[in-house]
Design a protein around this nucleic acid. Structure first.
Length: 808
DNA sequence: CTTCTGGAAGTATTC
DNA sequence: TGGAATACTTCCAGA
């Protein structure tokens, strides 16, 4: 657990405090889980792991993971969190005239040498072109930016109602004061110079990827504290969590919080006591406190924003300053002038786990992004928007009947085995241009860039995400940030995370979140790893069973049928389980291997007793929708390939993410949807079905996302996910999952198979629709063959399952 | 001329 | 400890 929750962004210090009069509206947020609400089990795909900690937090999704397992405090509290430099920038950009803004940025205090030259604001990251620092686009965007900085999450001291310049209530560091105070100036040239030079690599020399960072030669650090482009020492939310992890005891923790508070109140400009020292080389409570800024969670946050607790808080939107004449830029097609729909002060931190549905509302990713998208560096031009197999990702909010438009937020999150959180090495990048149909604008939430997209009732609260690209930040830059514990190397998988905040008539706000399937962002990985394609002649498929202690109990290479394989297709025969007489389902894993370090993620495969003829494919992370069939032969992607000696080092076992309820299989003559979260095809099975090899093989594949709720009545050819009952999120990863070797592994899951009907052959697929090109059943030789053809970009994964039964 | 991409060379880290 | 293998970034060039 320590590892799993050892660090989490944000949160950290939770001190019981008396809550100042809080607006009821906000109070409810904190005190009631309703804000983010809903029962845990409803969140499929949003939780990475149902750990005890999670349970503890079940009552409020807002709470961040606590490494020590301490339950989140229910009462008002103050969180001490790294302050985001971005917030500041945000303010400036959105509230000040361009000229002024630039100037302000230029004068930002750069207490943190290792500051992350945040691309997001000053840089290319936020502009249409990643190469331009202050492009028109950038300016334009900023005019629409919300002032996240004012969010209580960022600073309890700043009131959203503060003037656009936020000249008052400056936080610990002047750096956060938009108005800007005397500081070292940073010109664009300077900025450019830094980022432009390859040597940017902070260390210049080889770096050690040790968490303690002791190996980081800070003296070689090229960045001068005063030159860092607007990076505040506090850095990311992760800092907090990290702090917790580092802090051995509560006392220290508390002290740190107090120090932080003191600093926040008395320091003019962040004073980094340890300035100059490599972040990772100095993780002491004191140090942290120095970098921390007070942060109040929703509940207590209000205290600092009481004035904002009213229905109308246009102030939060920069339009105030914007409309007030600060900026004279063209109006965006979409009017963001509906403050009511946006209440930043109460927005949950990005690292908080939120449900995808609550009550009548459900935020779903209708069309999943492709399994890989090459992210671009700041030194490169944009590499375009993230795409889906067919078009672009699509997100829709279901159950919302109001006429008020809402704002859909999008940020790039992690895709590892830990709780979802903003990815430190990737940022969403706004894409504009004639090919983009969806308006958007960028905002900053701590160190995370957030793309805000309108969700309009007239569009059925559905948005086509064709405006989001992914920017890759240099590992060296990020790793040196104070508090950053993640390493970038081989940490190239991300997820698009969508959020929507709905303010109900009661005043309560419901925040929902839906995360996409993992997306591989590195060029290399996308070209070499078995991502659903990239199958090579020597690719092999291995089945592995591991004991709890990690050692291998069984391992065998699956036989590949080259004759039956087609280009980009691997036809694999599921090997018989070592024990032909199972009494209970057995979980094993399989993966595709293209070479020594080129392996796909583990894919779960479950052998079940003959009485339960089902196959479920369970792709990694997020899904609940299983594909249950009675298979004998499983065909995968790739072209035929020859067996190779197995070489599987047991990858880290993944902790089961969200407790996805297994849809109850309902026996019936036809395919139909069994649950809102998964489409299931249930076919009646012959009473006594003869099974070959393994009496019954169960493949469970899961993927995060949503599914078509419509019943599948025609087990015939299905075209593209969108129309397929299996649509919704089909990802697939059967034989060739898309993942990096180091990527998260299949997590423990025991619930899935449990739902397998004993008398019905059920097939449920929950994958990216766009990736599921077609599915059809054909009756041949009394053997029902279920073919699932899933395309991964250029390649196609062909899953063929044959069973001795007939479709009725 | 700019942006989008696919490739791949050059550099940094690991093995 | 040096070379090979990998992974990460930066460049190039064509569309």
């Amino acid at each position: 657990n320590q590892n799993a929750f050892g660090y989490t962004p944000n949160v950290t210090l939770s001190l019981p405090l008396s809550a100042p009069c809080l607006p009821s509206q906000y109070h409810s947020l904190q005190s009631s889980p309703t804000i983010s609400v809903t029962e845990p089990h409803l969140h499929q795909g949003n939780f990475d792991s149902p750990s005890p900690q999670d349970e503890l937090r079940a009552s409020g999704y807002y709470s961040s993971p606590r490494p020590n397992g301490a339950p989140a405090l229910e009462s008002p509290r103050i969180e001490i969190t790294a302050y985001s430099q971005f917030a500041e920038e945000e303010v400036e950009e959105s509230a000040l005239p361009v000229a002024k803004r630039v100037n302000s940025i230029v004068t930002l205090t750069l207490p943190n040498a290792d500051g992350y030259r945040d691309p997001s604001c000053l840089s290319p990251a936020s502009s249409v072109s990643s190469r331009s620092c202050h492009s028109e686009a950038s300016s334009y965007e900023s005019s629409f930016s919300y002032n996240y900085d004012n969010s209580p999450q960022n600073s309890p001291w700043q009131s959203p109602s503060v003037s656009p310049k936020g000249s008052t209530l400056a936080l610990p560091g002047d750096a956060h004061s938009p108005a800007g105070s005397p500081r070292t100036s940073i010109t664009e040239d300077t900025w450019m110079g830094q980022r432009g030079s390859r040597p940017n690599s902070p260390c210049g020399a080889k770096r050690k990827y040790s968490f303690n960072g002791s190996g980081t030669p800070h003296n070689k650090y090229p960045y001068s504290p005063t030159h860092s482009p607007g990076l505040s020492p506090q850095t990311s939310p992760r800092l907090s969590v990290t702090d917790e992890t580092w802090l051995p005891n509560t006392n220290q923790y508390t002290n740190s919080a107090i120090l932080a508070a003191i600093n926040a109140l008395t320091t003019d400009g962040m004073v980094d006591l340890t300035e100059g020292i490599p972040t990772k080389a100095r993780k002491t409570s004191l140090e942290h406190s120095a970098m921390l800024s007070l942060k109040v969670e929703p509940l207590s946050e209000e205290m600092g924003h009481s004035e904002l607790c009213t229905e109308d808080r246009p102030g939060l939107k920069k339009e105030g300053g914007y409309g007030g004449g600060f900026l004279d830029v063209p109006q965006h097609p979409y009017s963001w002038a509906k403050p009511k729909t946006y209440i930043s002060p109460s927005l949950p931190a990005l690292d908080w786990q939120l449900p995808s549905s609550s009550g009548q509302y459900s935020l779903q990713i209708e069309v999943q992004p492709r399994s890989h998208h090459r992210a671009h560096y700041e030194t490169e031009g944009s590499r375009g928007a993230v795409k889906a197999l067919t078009g672009h990702p699509v997100v829709q909010l279901h159950g919302y009947m109001e006429s008020e438009p809402l704002t859909l937020q999008l940020f790039i999150g992690t895709a590892d085995d830990r709780l979802l959180r903003p990815h430190a090495f990737y940022q969403v990048h706004r894409i504009t241009g004639k090919t983009v149909s969806t308006p958007s604008h960028e905002a900053l939430h701590n160190n995370t860039k957030v793309l805000e997209i309108p969700l309009l009732p007239e569009n059925n609260m559905r948005a086509i995400i064709d405006c989001a690209g992914i920017l890759k930040l240099r590992n060296s830059d990020i790793e040196l940030r104070k508090g950053e514990t993640d390493i970038g190397r081989k940490n190239t998988r991300v997820r698009m995370v969508f959020r929507v905040h709905i303010t109900q008539s009661s005043g309560r706000m419901v925040s929902l979140q839906a995360s996409s399937n993992p997306i591989e962002c590195s060029q290399r990985s996308a070209q070499e790893l078995p991502l659903g394609h990239n199958f090579q002649p020597d690719s092999k498929v291995l089945f592995v069973e591991k004991a709890q202690d990690g050692h291998h109990l069984w391992e065998t290479e699956a036989k590949v049928d080259r004759d039956g394989s087609k280009p980009n297709t691997l036809l694999v025969e599921v090997p018989p389980y070592r024990n032909q007489r199972l009494s209970t389902p057995v979980h094993v894993n399989f993966y595709v291997c293209n070479g020594k370090r080129k392996r796909s993620q583990y894919q779960r495969f479950t052998f079940v007793p003959a009485t339960v003829p089902t196959i479920k494919t369970e792709p990694h992370d997020d899904f609940d929708s299983p594909l249950t069939l009675t298979p004998i032969i499983l065909s995968g992607p790739g072209t035929g390939f020859s067996p190779v000696p197995p070489t599987p080092p047991p990858p880290p076992q993944r902790v089961s993410p969200k407790p996805a309820p297994v849809p109850p299989a309902s026996p019936g003559p036809k395919l139909h949807s069994l649950s809102p979260t998964a489409t299931t095809c249930a076919l009646p099975l012959p009473p006594q079905q003869p099974l070959v090899v393994p009496p019954h093989v169960s493949i469970i594949q899961e993927t995060p996302g949503r599914f078509a709720a419509s019943p599948l009545s025609q087990p015939s050819t299905l075209n593209n996910g969108l129309q397929s009952p299996f649509s919704a999120n089909a990802t697939t990863t059967l034989p060739a999952p898309s993942a990096s070797p180091l990527a998260p592994q299949p997590k423990e899951r025991s619930r899935d198979e449990a739902s397998v009907p004993s008398q019905a052959l059920s097939v449920s697929i929950k994958q990216e629709p766009q990736e599921l090109d077609q599915m059809y059943l054909d009756d041949g030789d009394s053997i029902l063959s279920l073919h699932i053809v899933v395309s991964f970009g250029k390649t196609v994964l062909h899953l063929c399952v044959k069973a001795f039964f007939c479709v009725i």
